[in-house]
Nucleic acid binder design. Structure first.
Ligand SMILES: [Mn+2]
Length: 572
DNA sequence: TCAAAGTTTATAT
DNA sequence: TAAACTTTGA
C-alpha cells in the first residue's frame, strides 16, 4: 500500500533520470521490489517448489539488474526486509487468503491439464518468501555484492543509510517501488527503474526548497511531511474517513502543526474520528522517524533518528512499537543473513525441522502488554502456506523448458570453474562465520553464480552434527600458503567421505560448463565461509547449529537436475 | 467538481 | 506494490 496516492500527488517533483547519474556512488536497493517482480518469471515453479533451476529465475532477474548497476559503476547495497513490524497483519491476512485461493484454483486448473490458466493463477498466488530472500543472500555473498538484512523494515534501514555520509557507509539514493521511503525521509528515491536503468526520481530537498511548484511544501519540514503521509493513510494506520493525500496536505500546510491538525480534525469529523487516532498517528509518525535499524559499524540496533526527549521519557517497554530491541549478536546475525529474521532460526539447510537458535531479548508477552495501536509482533510464524499435493505435482505436465537465457545488456557472470584448494585443512583458519548448505542449493547456485570467494569445506557425514561457528578476532581469512589449486569438474564432485577440502571457484579460469545431467551426490555437511566486502571485519558471534538426525533424507541426497521432481514444503 | 474510495490489472517472458 | 479506472459522496 505504501502512502496512499503519494506518488501521484508528488508527480510534479518526480523527474526522469538514468542511473548513470550515480556512477561511482553507493545506491541502496529495496530488495523486495525486485524479488517481487522477478517472482513473476517463475511463479509456478515457486508455488510448486519444483526442483531445478527455473525456480531460481527470480535470482537471474535480480542479478541482471545488479549487473546493470555495476556496469554503470554503481555500488549496489541490497537491503532486505527483516522481521515484521507489529502491524500489517490485517491486510496481510487478507492477501494471504487471496493468494491461497488463487493457489487452490491454480492447482485445480493444473489437474485439468490447463497449464495456461494455472500459470495465470499462480502469478496471483506468488509471494516473496524468506526462503527466496535467503537464496538471494547466498548469491549476493558469492557475488560479493554488499547486502544487509534489516532488523525490521527495509524501508527504515534504507532511510538510515541514506542519512549517513559516504564514509559511514551511506548511500546516495535508493531504488524502490515503495513510496514509504519518502515518509521515512530518504533523500533521493528512484522509482520504476527499468531494465535499461531509466527511472523516475524524487529528491526530497527539492520538494522542501521548491518555490513555484504545484503542491507547495514551503513551510514543511520532514516531520510535517511524514505527518501528511500518515494522515493520508499508511500501512501503520488507515486514514480518517474522508481524508486522503490532498486534504492531508491542505491541513498540514494550513495549521503547520500535527497537534492543531488533529484537534481540528477531531471537531470536524466527530464520530468518524477514532478515539485513539491522535495517539496512533503520533506513534506512526514516530515509527517513520525513529524505527529501529541496524548500525553496521557499531554492530547493534539503533534508531533511525535519535529519540526525541518526549520519547526518551517513556519507559523502555513503551518503545516496542519502534521494533523490539535485539541483542547485538542477534541483530548482527540477522543483518548478515545467518538467521531467519522472522522465525529466528538459523539458516541451517540440513534439517527440515529447524531448531530455534536464540530467543530475542524480550519475551512476546512483554510485547503484547505494550498496548500500542500496533498489534503484537509475531516472531514465530506459522507455516500456513499452502501445501502441495504430491500427486498433483507428479502428474503435472513438464513445462516446456524454454530456458531462455537472459543475457541482455550486461554480461552474466561466467560459468567459472571450480578450483579446489587442497592441502592441510587444519592449516586453513576456520574461524569465519560459516553456513551449512543443502547440497541441492549449492548445486543450483553453481550453475550460474559461482562460489567465488566462497570457501567450501566438505566434511564427513555425521549424525547429529553439532556445528558451532564463530569468528574470533582473526583478520582477513586468506587461504594463502600450503595450498595447491586444483581444477575440478563439478560433475566429478562426488562425495569424498572423509576428506576435507577447501574449494574456491576461480573467475579467471575458463572451461567449466555445468551440464544438465550433472549428478552431484554429497554426504555429510558442507561448510561455507564467506568474506564480506565492506563489513569485512570478522564477526564474533558464535552459534550452535544442531542438525539432529533429521538429515537422513539428505544423507543420501542425490541431486539430479534433470529429474525435476519436487521437494515440496520447506517454505514458510 | 474534486476528492475519496473502490475495483481491476500489471509486475516477467 | 503502483496505476489506471470507475463509482460514490458531499
Ligand atoms: Mn513499505
Amino acid at each position: 500500500m505504501g502512502i496512499k496516492d503519494l506518488l501521484r500527488f508528488m508527480k510534479p517533483y518526480i523527474l526522469p533520470i538514468h542511473i548513470q547519474k550515480y556512477a561511482g556512488k553507493r545506491v541502496g536497493i529495496d530488495a523486495y521490489s525486485w524479488l517481487h517482480k522477478g517472482a513473476y518469471s517463475c511463479s509456478m515453479e515457486l508455488c510448486l517448489d519444483t526442483d531445478g533451476k527455473k525456480k531460481l529465475r527470480y535470482i537471474d532477474y535480480f542479478m541482471h539488474r545488479i549487473n546493470l548497476l555495476q556496469h554503470y559503476e554503481i555500488i549496489p547495497i541490497v537491503v532486505l526486509d527483516g522481521g515484521h513490524m507489529p502491524c500489517k497483519a490485517a491486510t496481510g491476512d487478507e492477501r494471504q487468503r487471496k493468494r491461497k485461493a488463487n493457489f487452490d484454483a491454480a492447482m485445480a486448473k493444473l489437474k485439468e491439464g490447463n497449464v495456461g490458466a494455472a500459470t495465470e493463477l499462480f502469478q496471483r498466488a506468488v509471494s516473496v518468501t524468506s526462503s527466496m530472500a535467503h537464496q538471494l543472500v547466498e548469491v549476493l555473498k558469492s557475488e560479493n555484492v554488499e547486502f544487509i538484512v534489516a532488523p525490521y523494515e527495509a524501508d527504515a534501514q534504507l532511510a538510515y543509510l541514506s542519512s549517513l555520509e559516504l564514509e559511514q557507509g551511506g548511500i546516495a539514493a535508493v531504488i524502490t517501488e515503495d513510496s514509504d521511503l519518502l515518509a521515512y525521509g530518504c533523500k533521493a528515491v528512484i522509482f520504476k527503474m527499468d531494465r535499461y536503468g531509466k527511472g523516475e526520481e524524487l529528491i526530497l530537498d527539492n520538494v522542501f526548497q521548491a518555490v513555484d511548484q504545484k503542491p507547495s511544501f514551503q513551510n514543511f519540514d520532514q516531520e510535517l511531511f511524514t505527518a501528511m503521509c500518515v494522515l493520508a493513510g499508511c500501512d501503520f494506520l488507515p486514514s480518517v474517513p474522508g481524508v486522503g493525500i490532498s486534504r492531508a496536505h491542505a491541513f498540514i500546510s494550513k495549521y503547520q502543526s500535527v497537534e492543531r491538525v488533529l484537534s481540528v480534525l477531531k471537531t470536524k469529523k466527530g464520530k468518524l474520528f477514532p478515539d485513539n487516532y491522535s495517539s496512533s498517528l503520533v506513534e506512526a509518525v514516530s515509527v517513520f522517524q525513529h524505527a529501529r535499524v541496524y548500525d553496521f559499524d557499531a554492530k547493534k540496533l539503533k534508531y533511525l533518528k535519535p529519540l526525541s526527549q518526549s520519547l526518551l521519557d517513556l519507559p523502555v517497554e513503551q518503545l516496542e512499537f519502534l521494533g523490539p530491541d535485539l541483542t547485538p549478536s542477534v541483530a548482527a546475525a540477522i543483518a548478515e543473513g545467518k538467521v531467519d529474521p522472522i522465525t529466528m532460526e538459523a539458516f541451517n539447510r540440513f534439517s527440515v525441522s529447524k531448531t530455534p537458535l536464540k530467543t530475542p531479548v524480550r519475551s512476546f508477552k512483554e510485547q503484547e502488554k505494550s498496548g500500542s495501536f500496533l498489534e503484537r509482533i509475531e516472531l514465530k510464524r506459522t507455516a500456513d502456506e499452502a501445501m502441495i499435493d504430491p500427486e498433483a505435482v507428479l502428474k503435472e505436465p513438464k513445462y516446456s523448458k524454454q530456458d531462455l537465457d537472459l543475457h541482455k545488456l550486461v554480461l552474466q557472470p561466467n560459468k567459472d570453474q571450480m578450483v579446489i584448494r587442497t592441502g592441510n585443512p587444519s592449516l586453513i583458519p576456520n574461524n569465519n562465520p560459516f553456513k551449512i548448505r543443502k547440497t541441492d542449493e549449492m548445486n543450483m547456485e553453481s550453475e550460474e553464480y559461482g562460489l567465488q570467494q566462497l570457501k567450501v569445506s566438505f566434511g564427513t557425514k555425521s549424525e547429529g552434527m553439532d556445528v558451532s561457528c564463530s569468528s574470533p578476532n582473526s583478520k582477513e581469512h586468506d587461504c594463502s600458503e600450503g595450498q595447491k589449486e586444483v581444477i575440478i569438474d563439478l560433475s566429478k564432485l562426488v562425495d569424498d567421505s572423509g576428506v576435507k577440502q577447501d574449494c574456491e571457484k576461480n573467475r579467471e579460469e575458463e572451461g567449466f560448463e555445468s551440464t544438465e545431467d550433472d549428478v552431484v551426490e554429497i554426504q555429510g555437511h558442507v561448510n561455507i565461509t564467506t568474506k564480506r566486502v565492506r563489513g569485512a571485519k570478522p564477526r564474533t558471534e558464535s552459534f550452535k547449529v544442531k542438525t539432529s538426525s533429521t538429515c537422513s533424507e539428505n544423507k543420501k541426497a542425490k541431486i539430479n537436475k534433470k529429474s525435476s521432481i519436487l521437494d515440496f514444503f520447506h517454505r514458510l
